[in-house]
Design a protein around this nucleic acid. Sequence first.
DNA 1: ATCGTACGAGACATCTATGTATCATTTCTC
DNA 2: GAGAAATGATACATAGATGTCTCGTACGAT
Lengths: 190, 190
Amino acid sequence: MRPALNPSPRPTARDAIIDAAIRLWSRNPGATFSEVALHAGVGRATLHRHFRNRDDLLTVLAEICIEETNEAVATAIDRSASASRQLQRMFEAVIPLGDRYSFLYRAEIGDEHTTAEYRRQLDRVGTLVGELKAEGAVAADVPTAWVVAQIDQLIWTAWNEVASGRVAAADAAYLATRTLLHGLGKEEQP
Amino acid sequence: MRPALNPSPRPTARDAIIDAAIRLWSRNPGATFSEVALHAGVGRATLHRHFRNRDDLLTVLAEICIEETNEAVATAIDRSASASRQLQRMFEAVIPLGDRYSFLYRAEIGDEHTTAEYRRQLDRVGTLVGELKAEGAVAADVPTAWVVAQIDQLIWTAWNEVASGRVAAADAAYLATRTLLHGLGKEEQP
DNA sequence: ATCGTACGAGACATCTATGTATCATTTCTC
DNA sequence: GAGAAATGATACATAGATGTCTCGTACGAT
């Protein structure tokens, strides 16, 4: 049906498919089309009506994930703030999209455009790590690759713990930033 | 052929299959039998000669991973040492088995025995976190689930960074312990 | 050198997932 | 209420993965 004019349109079948596929495939990349349809609450024929094939759906999902994560980071980052403040803002923006962020490397999409975009995101994280080192928030002796890997995993772990209800959404970015910069030891008095 | 009596026997086809399957399926659980055979350097018929079917291989792998990770932890843990020392020793023991450790939850094995064993391992990690909190190495205000999740991911990340050559094997456990307890900020003078 | 064991390649059967198509039903718009 | 659009269920075709089997080859033990 054509998009309604009312202020809060009912999600279309296509939206339901996209959301269910990201959620399912970020955990279980081998899940079948039938399983995706089930999770989306639609018929398998409807999947085939909206997407030419599995590769088509994967490509569409990759574009959406790239766009959403890039936009979230661009909106959140204030270049005039300190690097550690930027880190926290980035966590705040990206953790709610943790499933989308990790979908980009877990789903084995493999086409060059997606790979290049994901690598660009990692490069930007690497640049931020350089700035964190320059301002002393991260020690210079720690391999940058290690810090980037930690940030990557913190995004997924935080999203997963929030999704599982074990951590409050409001606490996630703070816990992630604290874990990275200060660890989970007792906080000393300032 | 029957096992040789020489002190360092050539790895059998079965050993090659097991190692290749763990390595491949911990990253890409959807990989096919043909891909496993290729990675193992054997023919697909040889896979079928050693293992009844895909489920049989998965079950064997799960048993091996459980046994190796349990034995590594049991050997490394000195109950009389401090909790943070035990943490470092556990990291030293388990990180080289990071692919086996994460295979247990990534490969979607799903049988109750494997799930129970993995959960038992997580419970032991949770117990250690309790001890870390009791001795003040981890702050009491941090959710235990968050700390357990961080340890889980540190094992995989460390293994992956070592396997990729970006981090030296000798540094991995130290980086993991430091990241968890102190973070990656500049280390203050004692 | 011979025999036994293990293996690789390939053919074939079976199974599962995907892709295509059709028809009846439901939903939405006018 | 009528018509258009979208959907679900089902059947069928296709493709790929798995499982089985056979034969020739390689390797190890004697």
